[in-house]
C-alpha cells in the first residue's frame, strides 16, 4: 500500500490519507461520544457508562431486526442511510488530518460542507416525519425550524472566512490562523470562533438549547427524531449523529480555534500523530462542552431565539469590524 520508504519513513499517497480521514471520523466518533458521556457522568457524581459503550450499543443494534411503522414509506428506511452517507462526504472537504488540501478537498467549500450536513439533517427529519408518532414529528419540525434560525449565523461566519482569506475554503482559514499571532487576536477571528462555538452547541444538541441525554420528550429537538427507529437504522442514526458531532468539533478546532498539530507532510508518522492530536483536541472540546452542560440550565423553548440572537450578534459584529477597521 505504501508508496515507498523515503527519508523519514513510510509515505502515504494522498488517496490513502483521504481514506484515512474518513476512517478517522467513522471509527473515532463513537469513542468521542462515549468519552464525553463518561466525563459528564463523572462531573455529576455518577459512575457513568463505559467509554466504549457506544460501540457495544451499535453492535447490539446492528444484530437486531428492523421494525418499520405500518404507514411509513421507503423514506423511513432510506433517510438514515442518506444521512450516514452525507456525514461520510463532509470529512473529505475539511482539514481533518492535513494542513494541505487532499485531491477531493477542493470538491466543495465551506458552504458545500454546510449544505451536505444540512442534507443529512433533512434526511433524518424526513424519515422521522414519515412516522405517525407525534414526538418524532415534533422533533423533526423543531429541528428544521431552529436549523433555519441558526442559518444566518453560519452565513455570516462564512462571510468572515471569505473576507479574511479571499476564498471560502476551510484549508485557507486554518492556514491564515496558523500564519501569525495578529491573525488570532484580531477581533473578527475571536468573534467568529465564539459564534461558531455557539453554532456547534446548537447543532450537537447541547445544554442551553437541548438536554443531551434527557428522556423528557417535550423539551427534545434532535433527540426526538430517532424515537421511532430501531435496529440497524437506529444504529446508523446514532452513529451518524456521533459523526456529525465529531465533524463539527473538527471544524471548530482544525479550521477556527486551534489549527495546530495537523500533518504537513505525507509521512505515515506525521499522519498518525495528527490522528492522535485530533483525538486529543476533540476530547478537549468535548470536556469543555460537558462543563457547559453541567453549569447551565436548559433554555425554555421560546427563549432559544435569544441564544440564536446572541450567536447572530457575534457573527454580524465579526463581519462589521472586518469591514470598518480591517481588523
Amino acid at each position: 500500500m505504501a508508496q515507498g520508504v523515503v527519508g523519514q519513513g513510510v509515505m502515504l499517497t494522498p488517496v490513502e490519507i483521504q481514506v484515512l480521514q474518513d476512517l478517522t471520523i467513522v471509527v473515532l466518533a463513537p469513542l468521542v461520544s462515549g468519552a464525553i458521556a463518561h466525563v459528564e457522568a463523572r462531573w455529576q457524581g455518577r459512575r457513568g457508562p463505559r467509554i466504549l459503550q457506544p460501540y457495544y450499543d451499535l453492535a447490539k443494534w446492528f444484530r437486531k431486526e428492523t421494525l418499520v411503522p405500518e404507514d411509513a414509506s421507503w423514506v423511513f428506511v432510506v433517510g438514515p442511510m442518506v444521512a450516514f452517507m452525507c456525514y461520510l462526504i463532509v470529512p473529505l472537504l475539511i482539514p481533518v488530518l492535513t494542513t494541505y488540501p487532499l485531491p477531493l478537498g477542493y470538491m466543495g467549500d465551506i458552504l458545500a460542507g454546510g449544505f451536505v450536513l444540512a442534507l443529512g439533517g433533512f434526511a433524518v427529519a424526513a424519515a422521522a416525519a414519515e412516522t405517525d408518532a407525534p414526538y418524532a414529528q415534533l422533533g423533526s419540525s423543531r429541528a428544521m425550524t431552529f436549523g433555519a434560525l441558526i442559518e444566518p449565523t453560519i452565513l455570516f461566519i462564512t462571510f468572515v472566512v471569505a473576507l479574511v482569506t479571499s476564498t471560502d475554503l476551510p484549508y485557507f482559514e486554518a492556514a491564515a490562523a496558523r500564519a501569525s499571532v495578529a491573525q488570532i487576536v484580531r477581533p473578527a477571528h475571536i468573534l467568529a470562533v465564539v459564534a461558531f462555538f455557539l453554532v456547534v452547541l446548537n447543532d450537537t444538541g447541547r445544554i442551553p438549547v437541548e438536554t443531551h441525554a434527557g428522556t423528557l420528550e417535550l423539551g427534545m429537538i434532535d433527540e426526538a427524531r430517532t424515537l421511532e427507529h430501531s435496529g440497524p437504522l437506529l444504529a446508523l442514526l446514532t452513529w451518524g449523529s456521533a459523526m456529525k458531532q465529531l465533524i463539527l468539533y473538527v471544524l471548530l478546532v482544525n479550521v477556527f480555534a486551534a489549527p495546530w498539530g495537523l500533518a504537513s507532510t505525507r509521512s505515515a508518522g506525521a499522519v498518525g500523530l495528527a490522528i492522535l492530536a485530533l483525538l486529543g483536541k476533540a476530547l478537549g472540546v468535548g470536556v469543555l462542552f460537558t462543563v457547559i452542560d453541567n453549569s447551565f440550565s436548559k433554555l425554555r423553548l421560546f427563549k432559544i431565539t435569544e441564544f440564536m440572537a446572541a450567536a447572530f450578534l457575534l457573527a454580524v459584529l465579526a463581519v462589521l469590524v472586518l469591514f470598518v477597521g480591517g481588523s
Binding site: P101, S166, F172, S180, A182, V185, R186, P187, G325, S327
Partner: peptide, 28 residues
Amino acid sequence: MLLAHSVILSSAATVPSTFAGVADALTV
C-alpha cells in the same frame, strides 16, 4: 499549491498589527 501560498501571504499582509487587534478586541 503555489497559488494557495501566495493567497495566504497576501491576506497575511493585510492583517492589522497585534496592537490594533488587541485594542479592537477590547473595544468589541
